[in-house]
Design a protein around this nucleic acid. Structure first.
Length: 325
DNA sequence: CATTCGTGAAGACGAAT
DNA sequence: ATTCGATTTCACGAATG
């Protein structure tokens, strides 16, 4: 966009105070059927110079007119406003002012007008960056809300997440990262800080970005913001797994015990907390003579059976109590 | 037959040159 | 940016009930 007009998102182009106002706009020279005045074609309309009669509006609104098949499409294809694009940080909704000191027709501007344009550019830039940040924030918060409810996370977690996101925004962490990624990371971090963690996989599933980018962005955000996120406590997963598997309260209690003992023995170090929790949820029912398979647990915890095997043996060992002989 | 258990190769992650 | 060590996962087969 190196042309020199002030261009708004749709197709109207407003020329900036031309110095010479005659001649060259008149292309389709005919006579007005109404008053006999000269006709001028401009911006797709043929208008009578005398009486203002619009003779031909051929080009008006070549904007989108498609059928929308669902509400998402409706948003994208609506005729109100131009289609937005994800390619630009503000989705193409802001105003751009060209850098050359020419008007819309390529004529050079007078020095007074050059100064005027300069001021316009300055202010436009200020507004553009400010409200692009706000738009950014708005979108991110919407995403956080969506994901939080998909994950069944309480209100306070969402608030923490938005605080984290705001900080990321202030620290200029966004350039080069996707909004979605940072939003997802904020939510994940918030959930852990609030003691209601969700696993990486769970979060990634409701997010629009893939695992790998999510993890990368998350590490980046944590490092840059110096967030203190302690390793998740395996016990915080137990309740959820237990209820999904319908195991007895007694068994659930044993699972917590197993994890506490394991913690004292320092069995975890670099082990996946989810894995530990899954192992405990598998091991506990065995101690209370309940029927449960490794496969069931691995399904709900999203942990491989192998890992459950390895962990639950360690758990029983650390516990000192002996497995069912 | 289903479930559990063990193994080795392969991938992913964090830390450190 | 690469390399290393530990962990997890996958695929398989064997043992157990």
């Amino acid at each position: 966009m190196t042309d020199t007009s002030i261009r708004t998102n749709d197709h109207r182009v407003t020329s900036v105070e031309r110095e010479s106002t005659d001649e060259e706009t008149r292309e389709d020279e005919t006579v007005c059927p109404e008053c006999g005045g000269d006709l001028v074609t401009e911006s797709g309309e043929t208008v009578c110079e005398e009486c203002g009669l619009v003779v031909d509006e051929d080009n008006v609104d070549r904007g989108p007119e498609w059928r929308a098949f669902d509400s998402k499409e409706k948003d994208e294809k609506s005729r109100v406003g131009a289609p937005t694009t994800k390619m630009m940080h503000d989705e193409g909704l802001s105003t751009n002012i060209g850098w050359q000191d020419k008007d819309a027709y390529g004529n050079t501007l007078s020095s007074r007008q050059r100064q005027k344009m300069q001021r316009l550019r300055t202010w436009n830039e200020r507004f553009r960056t400010r409200d692009s940040q706000e738009r950014n924030l708005k979108q991110a918060l919407g995403e956080i809300d969506r994901m939080a409810s998909a994950l069944g996370l309480p209100e306070n977690v969402r608030e923490t997440a938005s605080v984290i996101y705001r900080r990321a925004l202030e620290e200029d962490l966004l350039p080069g990262r996707s909004i979605e990624g940072v939003a997802t990371s904020s939510l994940y971090a918030a959930a852990r800080q609030a003691g209601t963690p969700r696993s990486i996989d769970e979060v990634a599933n409701v997010s629009r970005i893939d695992d790998q980018e999510f993890k990368r962005t998350y590490r980046y955000v944590v490092r840059e913001l110096g967030l203190e996120v302690k390793p998740a406590d395996p016990e915080s997963y137990v309740g959820r797994f237990a209820s999904e598997l319908d195991i007895s309260d007694e068994a659930e209690r044993r699972a917590h015990e197993l994890l506490r003992n394991a913690k004292d023995e320092g069995v975890h170090s670099g082990k996946s907390p989810v894995g530990l929790a899954a192992a405990a949820v598998y091991a506990a029912p065995l101690l209370t003579n309940e029927q449960i398979t490794q496969r069931e647990v691995s399904e709900v915890a999203d942990i491989s059976e192998v890992t459950i095997r390895n962990r639950y043996k360690e758990l029983l060992e650390a516990d000192g109590t002996i497995a069912p002989a």
